[in-house]
Design a protein around this nucleic acid. Structure first.
Lengths: 155, 155
DNA sequence: CCTTGTTAGTTACAAAAACAACTATTAGGT
DNA sequence: ACCTAATAGTTGTTTTTGTAACTAACAAGG
């Protein structure tokens, strides 16, 4: 007499999402952690700068929905390790432009290729249609706009 | 010249999973946090005991893949608040059987109904087929066996 | 130019997680 | 019985996070 009715924890979407996220993150973590001593947020910032080029901390925060304190700390670490360089905006001296150094670029390229093959590994467990639907649903749940409906809010 | 090629962070499954998980957890958090002063792991333990009845800490850990130290501290809190009762196994005095008290049952029933409607709210953004597929894919990614293929490894 | 309000980013402190080391108990040889 | 290893759960210490408060720079109105 342990089993109850229809709705169990293992069906609850937030639980499932967390479990799937933890499982998949944990495995990928080893790449940026062991090889570069990076933390998750540092890797995320690195990846954003690698993908989109020069950005401010605020830009990254908006795009990735990471809180500004996390970004601040991640950028500090990355700058300390000479993976990113910072330069003040002369028009608005509150904000700084961040970009990867050559060393940062190299780390980005390496990790990006790791990420691509890991993503492919995960995706291979499903059909292409299923994966496309999964990504789209996750984007919706995460409050991230669809890639083709992007609004580039800055020039 | 900011846009690069095809693969961006917003397509990377571990990133998407984490973002979706954080977003959905954060919103549901208010229920167990504000109403019962619970932490996420406490709620998970409560939910497991509510769903499956009597279990040991180890059982919960295996089923939910939560580390034993988290469970230990969650159980301590729940016991302190008289939501769970503990009783030593007389055959193996290392382990204890945990079960909900009436107060724990009440909290469980309340939170469970909150969880059900929140889950329904999330699911309503998609078609039933899509949600079923999503759950199944997440289960696979999380390393959780399909519910109809469950193996009840204990008596 | 001087208030008041807002924004970009940092820092400080409290809460929670991760990890290792620990106690108590059981199990399996020999 | 005794030694070693394994297991259930707890505790202590170090990292990381979350939250709030802060500094510095801008902006708008008077």
């Amino acid at each position: 007499m342990t089993q109850k009715d229809d709705f169990s924890l293992q069906d609850f979407l937030p639980f499932l999402l967390n479990r799937a996220a933890e499982d998949s993150s944990l495995e990928f973590q080893s790449h940026y952690k062991n090889r570069y001593g990076m933390l998750r947020n540092e890797w995320r910032v690195l990846f954003h700068l690698g993908t989109y080029g020069q950005m401010t901390a605020k830009d990254i925060g908006q795009r990735a929905k990471i809180h500004k304190t996390k970004i601040s700390r991640a950028v500090a670490k990355l700058a300390e390790r000479r993976f990113v360089s910072r330069s003040r905006d002369e028009k608005d001296r509150r904000s700084e432009h961040l970009r990867l150094t050559p060393a940062g670029e190299a780390a980005y390229r390496d990790l990006r290729s790791q990420a691509e093959s890991y993503d492919a590994e995960l995706a291979a467990r499903f059909t292409p249609d299923e994966v496309a639907l999964l990504r789209s649903m996750l984007r919706k749940l995460a409050g991230i706009e669809e890639p083709f409906a992007q609004s580039w809010e800055q020039g």
